[in-house]
Design a binder for these strands. Structure first.
Lengths: 379, 379
DNA sequence: TAAACAAATGCAATCGTTTGCGCAATTCGT
DNA sequence: ACGAATTGCGCAAACGATTGCATTTGTTTA
């Protein structure tokens, strides 16, 4: 790993000297007027300057490889810095540059953390961000408007360069977001979009995803397809329903409203489904807004003695951990959370670095993919 | 929500004025010498001072409610600040205090993000941290030593007040961690502990968790219990194995080494299990190091025509999403990731704030809980 | 030989806050 | 009414880095 530190160093004089973690340098200096022995801190330019008998300005210029410092001095200073594992104080750098340069911290607001889709998105954001030299500050809103506001304040105070956010469910006012925009902090929404704001966003192609899935059900012989969706106040719910409706329409089937239910979790699915299977002309397939709901349906349908997929087909949406655990494995629409996260980070960084115009909202749609497994028949 | 901003304000003069997100104040000031119209920035003490005809020092003291400023002036300044949504520049604050006060950013290093256990831990850390006024910077090591080192550097540069970390699998050198400690950044390990370092840590009670689970299997009539564990180089693997061994011993059973396998993922489980069921005296129960592996066993055993739990019992470890999705639902040891995260954050904050001594490693063990479901018989 | 020039370095202000110290103005005690 | 104590406020130096401008050298040119 020796070469690693050198590699990093060679990359940049601008980006500075990393601490070579694999050597044992005199990183730890004891404070001059020793008061607290535990008080450890690192070198500053002043230390280098004092030690080498030059001014701080010279050190600064030498370390930034300015040609106005003589070759020998420059190299001497650089070497001293490297040997003593000097690295610049980001706080000071930032204070100095706060008017021109944004920080490299991206704020990420997640409704919840223990959730497959959000984890994948976070993963995508982290990958893209760290690859481009940013780090992420993560906060979860717990689906609460109040916490969301507080988090926005905190992130503004902590000078993030931008925020990637999925709204909390009970957020219906958007002033906090507008304030952020007004304060010059760019915003990128994912998953749950703020309809009132014309902000940049990344969403998955709910419409086409659902349409393809439902078409698949029809093509494999299903004729009475139930739809379990989220409340229509959510944009994604509406899009998925439209996809369902249009798939039926395109295949010449009529939409039977008795087959449409608001249901987006397992408990509800287990409560509702028995009734659904007792109606006069029960469904021969289910499309569920997420895998969790689909699993609920599956467990009930199996318990009622139907065979899956022969008598009843089931299709979910997410393709999370659950999808390959149930028996039979779940056919589902892959939501590609990681890709959503990457796109969101890409937009945000573009906005921050100026490669994307701030006055126009960048909107991206991530394509979904139907993953056919055991809960639907093969064509 | 008007009352919210006021509520926050009333809480603290020290913690400062939040931006009232629900009003439309003159947060955005136009730069005096307008060059870039997009350049938005917020008030500083200097602005307040100029406007009210006092010195910056007075503003600072008034806002920190110092008694050395007269009541009227103090209130006037506070009111002006509140009305104009002044809030202090954390960067500047930090620079000033860098020698005494740590930042309020906690670094969190996770091997992966899309993973139930790590998500729960992250969730626990976030909850505890945000409740105590800290925020978290999250980075994933992707199980790579090199990335882990780089992340440590980056976090050190970004002045986190401490780091909570689970080692990458291929980390075998610990210099980077030692450097952090040396630089005064406290470290708390979770899940994967660094054996070479006597650092603070939070682990789950792998030994007792496994012992209880295996005892449960024995009490429900199982006699030949297979053990699928992780490589013994990992501490948790060893502890879990010991729990298994001692449970057998305590119940008067002998350990049959042909029933012990290194196997910690689904693919391996599906490969190994058919063979395992063909040995002369096949197991009547499996204990697996995690739910994923247990699910793999379950799917094979079911496919081979055994009934679960009547002929074969299965027990996992984690109690993640998967556990309630498989059929029958999985009996498993609940790992309480969220609690682990909370304890870790609690230790770290204690270390940072000085309520816990830095010279002694704080070690906590989170109790597990056996969750009996459908893959094992009831006593 | 003095003026002009280039190269190398230092001075000092700046970013936004905090804080020790000192200076005025007021109030107090005698 | 005069020195002492108190009160209220400002000056200026930090914190660690950057950068325009001035200064110090040494070299070249007229």
């Amino acid at each position: 790993m020796q070469s690693f530190a050198q590699f990093v160093f060679s990359l940049y004089l601008r980006t500075w000297f990393p601490i070579s973690m694999t050597q044992h340098p005199t990183l730890v200096r004891v404070k001059k007027n020793v008061i607290n022995m535990d008080d450890k801190q690192h070198m500053t330019m002043k230390d280098i300057a004092r030690e080498l008998g030059v001014s701080v300005a010279t050190v600064s210029r030498a370390l930034s490889d300015s040609p106005s410092i003589s070759r020998e001095r420059r190299q001497a200073i650089q070497q001293y810095a490297r040997e003593h594992n000097y690295f610049p104080n980001v706080i000071a750098e930032q204070l100095r540059h706060s008017r021109r340069n944004p920080s490299r911290a991206i704020g990420v607001i997640v409704p919840e953390l223990v959730h497959y889709y959000f984890s994948s998105i976070l993963d995508g954001i982290e990958s893209e961000a760290s690859a481009r030299g940013y780090h992420i500050i993560v906060a979860k809103s717990n689906e609460s408007y109040e916490r969301e506001v507080r988090i926005c304040e905190s992130m503004l105070k902590n000078k993030v360069c931008g925020i990637i956010v999925s709204q909390a469910k009970d957020t219906e006012r958007y002033d906090h977001f507008m304030h952020l925009e007004a304060a010059g902090v760019p915003l990128v929404f994912y998953d749950r979009i703020c309809p009132a704001l014309n902000a940049s966003r990344v969403v998955v192609d709910d419409y086409m995803g659902t349409m393809n899935a439902v078409s698949h059900l029809i093509e494999t012989g299903c004729r009475r397809i139930a739809f379990y969706g989220a409340p229509m106040s959510m944009v994604i719910a509406k899009n998925r329903f439209n996809g369902y409706r249009d798939a039926l329409y395109k295949k010449g089937l009529t939409l039977d409203e008795s087959l449409v239910r608001i249901c987006d979790n397992r408990a509800d699915a287990e409560r509702i489904t028995p009734t659904m299977m007792q109606i006069e002309n029960p469904p021969d397939a289910f499309f569920a807004v997420n895998d969790e709901t689909a699993i609920g349906i599956l467990s009930v349908v199996k318990r009622l003695g139907y065979s899956v997929p022969d008598e009843v087909s089931i299709c979910g949406f997410t393709n999370g951990f659950r999808a390959t655990v149930c028996d039979p494995m779940l056919t589902t629409v892959e939501q590609r959370g990681s890709q959503v996260g990457k796109e969101a980070a890409d937009i945000l960084i573009g906005l921050v670095e100026g490669t994307l115009p701030r006055d126009r909202a960048e909107k991206r749609i991530v394509k979904t993919r139907l993953v056919v497994r055991g809960t639907t028949r093969h064509p």
